[in-house]
Design a protein around this nucleic acid. Structure first.
Lengths: 215, 215
DNA sequence: TCCTAATAAGGGGTAAAAAT
DNA sequence: ATTTTTACCCCTTATTAGGA
């Protein structure tokens, strides 16, 4: 009833899902690169060339387009993530500079109002080198800044993404570094780090991940 | 050798591509919500309940998991984008504050060294509003950033990034505003602040970011 | 009638359990 | 210890429903 046997060596009658040969795939990919949406006649030509039904060629291009699109979503993610990381880095730099400026302002004000003071030697208190102390909690404590909160918040989220997007992990120990400052309850959701399933999907672990909770 | 148990491999006589009924789908979805990877016996039970081959149930769950995973990527994207936006907004706030601080420092220094100065008359002179370059070079020029390497070639071809780009661009205006004060690095980079020792700020631009260390 | 989105199913590859 | 079975992943082919 269905498929005509025109160009089919393989019985296409039943849903024989034989993969196309490597050459066929190669040619199709080549055509796809030059034109992802060929017209009917082009498809017909391709079909004749490769010994496929025009219908198969059509379907192949459709599927190929869909595949391309879905792959692009992943690429979008990593690009956006790169931008996020970059921005986070800049954020940190800016924050440190901000701290420096605050200290400088204090120093200058001290100079202005008092002859000299040793308030400026408190500069590099917590923002020392190594990675863990990154999220130094509010170095601007000198002058109460309303922005103090966003450090942990942002960084934590960033790490969450690191966690659940990395395909191979094995490094579950770095959670400590933000746990240090997450002593308060505001980060209760971090319990999920232990259940983030590194291998593609959740295993027998039936705990839903945090991002699944609001679908 | 053949598999008699539940999930018999018996090829469906014909490729019944009929979609499952809405009821079947509904039940399956319900089961999936409670358990995305049912065991054989569960699948058998479901199959019996819904009048499907165990094989079909198995396949359905597999496909459903795959679907879930790919949707997850999209959700990750929007979550990440939300975080990006949030961080960007905080970045802007911080930047404005930074500018205020710079002006204040200038004012204080002016007070100290000269009787008076009008350094605070910086107006948004150059609000360039041209379009597409997301990786506009500016916002962080005040401190040389190694992350500037991501250039627009990765960005183009992304329709998803349209909003993203436009946001970046819209935040650009204030950057220019800020740049006025920091056109030369004499003020912007805290390097010149004599009292505070800010070398830790920008000496190691090429150090990988802390979150890159364990990706 | 073209398309896209969703989806059922085939088939290869693989890891771990079960059987030899 | 090896082979076989089983279950699952990934990717693919094909079908169906619906939109412009």
């Amino acid at each position: 009833m269905d498929i005509d046997p025109v160009a089919s060596e393989q019985t296409n009658k039943n849903c024989n899902k034989r993969r196309f040969s490597d050459e066929q795939i190669k040619s199709l990919e080549l055509m796809f690169n030059s034109e992802s949406r060929p017209g009917s006649k082009t498809k017909q030509r391709i079909a004749n060339q490769l010994g496929l039904h025009p219908r198969q060629v059509s379907v192949w291009f459709q599927n190929r387009r869909a595949r391309s699109k879905s792959k692009q979503t992943e690429r979008d993610y990593s690009i956006l993530k790169a931008h996020y990381d970059s921005l986070a880095s800049k954020f940190e730099v800016l924050k440190k500079e901000n701290q420096t400026l605050i200290i400088e302002v204090q120093r200058l004000r001290g100079l202005k109002e008092r002859p000299k003071d040793s308030t400026s030697d408190s500069a590099p208190a917590t923002c020392s080198s190594n990675g863990e102390s990154f999220s130094l909690s509010s170095p601007e404590k000198l002058i109460a800044k309303p922005e103090d909160y966003y450090t942990q918040d942002e960084i934590l989220c960033n790490d969450k993404f690191e966690e659940f997007k990395s395909f191979e992990q094995e490094t579950n120990n770095q959670e400590n570094f933000y746990m240090i400052e997450s002593a308060d309850d505001s980060l209760a959701s971090s319990r999920n780090y232990s259940s983030v399933e590194p291998t593609y999907l959740m295993e027998h672990n039936c705990i839903p991940n945090w991002w699944e909770l609001w679908v």
